[in-house]
Design a protein around this nucleic acid. Structure first.
Lengths: 134, 134
DNA sequence: CAGTATCCCTCATGATACTG
DNA sequence: CAGTATCATGAGGGATACTG
């Protein structure tokens, strides 16, 4: 039944999935990729494939638990690959998959937007807080 | 000291703020704009300015509490404007600010990506789950 | 209509300790 | 090194009821 092109399939998907609908599985996916650790990790892995320890240093402040958990989720969702090299000690390397690479531009954009507009937001908050109570 | 152009200021901001650093305020901003309700609300407000009740219907499943809370945060951050028209009953309309409009493309992209790639992710999960235990 | 105010509870996340 | 396991906490978020 390979009569649908990739482009047609994408159109179909857009019709089938609508994140405005509460029961849509897209909600969960949106939740996952809208995670702060996800955006930081995808960005960090885009710089270069990295080992567990490297990642925890690059993404400062992430706990071992959240790093493991987020990486597992990303691996399960097909965004990140996990390669184990048997050795002593064992070497585990994480990298973006093609699907992860496809998501990358969005993750880069969101991180870049936050960094670029931090001061404007800070100013808006100051305005809001002085206009309203405290 | 208005010797810096807008472009230069953006470059400065990128140097000053780095979301990889744990203490960077960007982390909080990233968290906020990486919220599932935020992306849905920004998208909904881009379609047209909307009233409270319209929003709660458009973004199905959101509770009154989360809607209020998220709107307040977005207003405080300067992404959304809130206009009250005195009348009986009172009319309150929410709309995107220029800053919110600036963020819109990113919010559209993330929602669109989730909807477009849902099936690939679902397939990846099925693979992962059958490869590993259950 | 557009909220605010409470109660309540689950789950996300961090801290700590242990392991192949 | 690259995790897993366990415990503890508090914030996120839903349900319900009330108000200008």
């Amino acid at each position: 039944m390979a009569t649908r092109t990739a482009a047609q399939q994408r159109v179909d998907a857009k019709l089938r999935y609508d994140a405005y609908v509460a029961e849509c599985p897209t909600r969960h996916l949106l939740d996952r990729i809208s995670d702060k650790w996800t955006s930081l990790l995808i960005n960090a892995l885009a710089e270069q494939p990295r080992r567990f320890g490297e990642l925890s240093r690059r993404v400062a402040g992430i706990s071992q638990k959240m790093l493991t958990q987020t990486l597992r989720n990303l691996e399960r969702d097909g965004l990140v690959s996990r390669t184990v090299t048997p050795a002593v000690p064992v070497r585990v390397e994480y990298a973006l998959t093609p699907l992860g690479l496809d998501l990358l531009p969005v993750m880069q954009a969101i991180k870049a937007w936050a960094e670029a507009n931090m001061e404007e937001v800070l100013a808006a908050r100051a305005d809001y807080d002085s206009a309203n109570g405290s």
